[in-house]
Every structure is written in structure tokens, then in C-alpha cells.
């Protein structure tokens, strides 16, 4: 238990009350064999070190994801080696590859079936924006049009080290969350949104083509002639 992380800077600054025990005092107590921590830190420490991804791949990025899970890159060093074949048991959806419009409703359905707390990584250019296939007639221009994405990993495809880096960034994000307040995980907030609407297959496109609660197109003002 000696590797319980010290208070995250976000969590220290987020609470209004001053810290009762400073980090230095806690470190001193730990050397004496007394562990002093917060419920929040303990909870987040446990969650962030057992992020179980969904065993789900879409395209060439999935090959890199598989490589990251094998012995050479060894994602189990970070507690994420337990790829779950069922969304009911998974914490993390790695959207690894091109999301076609035909596949998008299934991806969103899988996301809906995952229990909270859940996180989403958009891995690679296609999952972020459509990538090289952005102008294709059957390619979704980024999975963030329908589900909230926590970590974006650029690359085409990203190397396994990049996926590990994204996972570490996600772990830092989880450790920075609070049990209460606006920075709490979704399932601890009042505005709990576990269900996201699944688009229908329309005559020309998905209907709706994006979820306006999650995604708004960027507002850009062009000034050049």
C-alpha cells in the first residue's frame, strides 16, 4: 500500500477547506508505518489502476492496441490487461479505427451497455475526425459526434507507446476526479447520463448526423479574402 498516490494537485485545490495534514506530514507518518489518506484518493487510486478495456477493435489501430496488450509493450504494467469481451464488465472503450456510418450505431450501443464509471479513448486519426477517409460517403467524422471522448490519441495509427501514454493520461484524469461537485465522475453527479441516443439509419445519412448535446461543430470566422 506504500504506492498510494499523494493528493492530486487538482483535488487539493478543488476543496475549499485547507488541508488538515500537509503532504510532508503524511510522508513522515508513512515512514512511521501509519497510512493516512483520503477516501477520494483511495477510490481513485483503485479505479485508475484497474481500467479494463473493452475487447473491441475496428481497423488497423486495433492491431496496435493488440500489440500494446502483448508482452513487448505490456499494457498490464498499468493494470489494463484485462480485456473484457462483454461491455457489461468493461470500464474503457478504445475506439480503435475508422468508424463507418454503418458501424456507428453499434459502437454507441456498446457504449450504452457499459456501466458507469466509463471512459472513452478515441485512438487514431479516424476515430478523432474521420482521418484520411473524412470525405468518404460512409465514414463518421469522429466518434465524438455521438459519445463523449475523454482522451484523443493522434496518429495513423498511433504506436503502442502512444496508447500507453494515452492510458496514463486517462489515469491522471481519473485521479483528478472528485467524489462530489462538477468534476465528479458521471455516475456520482445528478445530471447522470448513462444512455446516449443511438442514431437511426436514414435514407441519406445517419439520423441525426450528430448528437447536439455532445457535439457542436467548431465556430470559425474566416477573415481572409
Amino acid at each position: 500500500m506504500s504506492d498510494v498516490p499523494s493528493a492530486h494537485p487538482d483535488s487539493a485545490s478543488g476543496s475549499a477547506a485547507p488541508a488538515l495534514v500537509s503532504d510532508q506530514e503524511r510522508e513522515e507518518l508513512r515512514r512511521q508505518g501509519i497510512l493516512l489518506t483520503k477516501m477520494e484518493d483511495l477510490y481513485n487510486w483503485g479505479r485508475s489502476n484497474s481500467v479494463w478495456p473493452l475487447n473491441f477493435g475496428l481497423a488497423c489501430c486495433a492491431i496496435e492496441m493488440i500489440a500494446a496488450s502483448m508482452a513487448r509493450f505490456d499494457i498490464s504494467r498499468f493494470g489494463s490487461e484485462v480485456y473484457r469481451p462483454s461491455p457489461r464488465q468493461a470500464d474503457l472503450l478504445i475506439v480503435s479505427g475508422t468508424v463507418t456510418k454503418k458501424m456507428a450505431p453499434q459502437v454507441i450501443r456498446l457504449w450504452n451497455q457499459m456501466p458507469e464509471p466509463k471512459y472513452c479513448i478515441a485512438m487514431g486519426a479516424c476515430a478523432i475526425s474521420g482521418g484520411p477517409f473524412k470525405q468518404g460517403y460512409n465514414v463518421l467524422k469522429g466518434i465524438d459526434r455521438f459519445i463523449p471522448v475523454d482522451i484523443y490519441i493522434p496518429g495513423c495509427p498511433p504506436r503502442p507507446e502512444a496508447l500507453l501514454n494515452g492510458l496514463i493520461a486517462l489515469q491522471e484524469k481519473i485521479r483528478g476526479q472528485h467524489l462530489t461537485g462538477p468534476n465528479a465522475p458521471r455516475h456520482l453527479r445528478a445530471d447522470d447520463r448513462c444512455e446516449y441516443p443511438v442514431p437511426e439509419f436514414g435514407a441519406h445519412d445517419l439520423e441525426p448526423p450528430a448528437n447536439p448535446e455532445v457535439f457542436q461543430p467548431p465556430t470559425i470566422v474566416r477573415t481572409e479574402k
Partner: peptide, 15 residues
């Protein structure tokens, strides 16, 4: 490749 409800033909020139 496309879903059954799809009405267009994407590889036609006038798509």
C-alpha cells in the same frame, strides 16, 4: 456495404 435503408448510390458521378 451501405445499410438497407440507404437510397443513394455513392459511386455515381452525380451523387
Amino acid at each position: 456495404l451501405m445499410w438497407d435503408e440507404f437510397k443513394d448510390f455513392p459511386m455515381r458521378k452525380d451523387y
